[in-house]
Each structure stands twice: as C-alpha cells, then as structure tokens.
Design a protein around this nucleic acid. Structure first.
Length: 268
DNA sequence: GCGACAG
DNA sequence: ATCTTGTCGC
C-alpha cells in the first residue's frame, strides 16, 4: 500500500528536490524492514510455465508477463517516463503498453531505488487493475535487483510486495553486496566446471544464494543478474528469464526500456 | 581515509 | 539514469 516515498510531509517550498536527509534514510530503512516481513521467496502462483502432458485440462498457463522501466530527461532530471508493457509469454509480442510522464523529486540513493521508481509503476498497474484489464500481468520483471541487495530487499522485492505480484529482478550491473564482486563473478562464469553452463549461482560471503549471473545471449560476454523478487523461486526466475531473452536483456524489460525512452522523446 | 555504490 | 557516432564483426 505504502511505498515510503511520501513518508515526509515535505511541506518545503519548491526546490526540496533531490535532498536526502538522515531522517529520510532512517524512514526508508524502516519501511524496507516492514515490507520485507511480507516477502515470499518461493514459488507462489497457480499457473504453469507449460502444459503438462497429463491433465492438460483446466490448467492455467503463464501467458501475460509484464515489464517496467523508467527513463529520465537529460534536460530536466526530475522529468521521467514510466512504462509498463505486457508480453505474451509464448510469442513475446507486446500486447499492452502504457506510459506516463511524471515528475520525480525523490533522489536515487543506492539501495533505495524502489522509493524513486515504484510509485509510478504502481500507478500504471492500478490503472490496469481498475478496468479489470484481461492482460493484467501474472508476473512482472523489473530492471533492478530483488534480494541481491544490501538488505535483501531490492526494488523488485519492494514492487512485488506492494503490488502483491510475482516479480523477478533484472540487473545489468552487479550491485556489490555480501562480498560479491565483478571479478568473483567472472571467475565463476569462466571456471571450467561451469564451461557448459549458462548461468551460475551467486553465493555471498554469508553463504546465502542471492541470485544468478546468466549469459543470456550469445553475442555478449557481459552477464545479466537475475534475482528473486517476490513469490518466485530463483530456479523459476532463471527459467523464465532465459525463455524471454531474444537479446541480453529479457524482452519484457527491454521493451519497457525502449518504449519509455521513445515516449519521453515524443512527448517532451 | 579510500573505494564501491542496482537505476 | 544520461552525455554520444561510427564502426568492427558475425
């Protein structure tokens, strides 16, 4: 329900933008802590990825998979465009698209991405829900991490919990957490034992598995970082991501990225 | 003090 | 995130 972005009454004049006080920091830490209690890191959905051979009757399949992203204006960094797309999981066609230009006065603070971006995504989702849109996504991919996060609660977890949707986090760069480094990831991916594997689990110093690095497309050595957002296991997340990758970045997120940039350019 | 720090 | 064109290669 609450995203925490409006924790402060923020009565201040206009240029209260892009400020971040210790008070904000503490409030955001608390909000994350509270929301994290609702986090589910196992598969918790009724649909299947594909029809099973037996009893293929009445089985709900995964068909509508959403992706969200946001682009910012180069001229005015407080002007942004949030986009929600929904793709057909089997064809990867975009079957729904909605964008909104918004003004964002919440700064980007590493570890607190959701407070800046989640509110706009929530609105776009609510708009679909309010009209009972038949393409409302069964699962959402977010560009940003899930539990691969300093406190195990990245933006994909945040959005998943507040929207009560299964979510998967997609990072294009590694968020250095729990001892994980780029060189460590490279070692893992290049290790002989992983020669014929297309992804490796990322296990931090704590021993926890925080996500997976996957070589999603042949052309790129640079991996993407998949982590559990909400109500999806890592194994399922990796499987779903692999099946939606035409290029390095999975289509739901890639299409949202492209279309938000286009929309911003056209309408600003 | 220094480096790192999703988008 | 954004600043930025062409270019080398399959």
């Amino acid at each position: 329900m609450e995203t925490g972005s409006e924790v402060d009454p923020a009565p201040s004049p206009s240029p209260a933008r892009f400020h971040f006080s210790d008070h904000d920091h503490n409030a955001w830490l608390q909000a994350q802590d509270l929301l994290k209690k609702k986090l589910v890191t196992e598969d918790d959905y009724t649909w299947k990825l594909e029809e099973s051979v037996e009893e293929r009757s009445g089985e709900e399949l995964l068909k509508y998979i959403g992706g969200v992203d946001i682009s910012f204006s180069k001229d005015d960094p407080s002007v942004a465009c949030g986009t929600l797309v929904v793709l057909d999981f089997t064809t990867l066609d975009v079957v729904y698209e909605d964008s909104a230009i918004v003004k964002i006065d919440v700064p980007y603070v590493p570890g607190f991405l959701a407070f800046r971006e989640a509110p706009i995504f929530l609105e776009l989702l609510k708009k679909m829900q309010d009209c009972s849109h038949p393409f409302y996504p069964q699962l959402l991919m977010i560009d940003g991490n899930g539990i691969l996060h300093p406190r195990g609660f990245g933006s994909a977890c945040h959005l998943g919990v507040v929207a009560n949707l299964p979510t998967i986090g997609i990072g294009k760069n590694l968020h250095h957490v729990d001892g994980l480094t780029n060189s460590r990831v490279r070692e893992l991916l290049e290790a002989e034992e992983n020669f014929n594997v297309d992804f490796v689990s990322l296990i931090g110093d704590s021993g926890n598995t925080l996500g997976a690095a996957i070589h999603s497309s042949k052309g790129s050595y640079k991996p993407i970082f998949v982590s559990v957002g909400h109500r999806v296991s890592l194994a399922s997340a990796v499987e779903i991501v692999k099946r939606t990758c035409k290029y390095r970045v999975p289509e739901p997120v890639r299409q949202a990225d492209i279309r938000s940039r286009d929309y911003l350019r056209k309408h600003h």
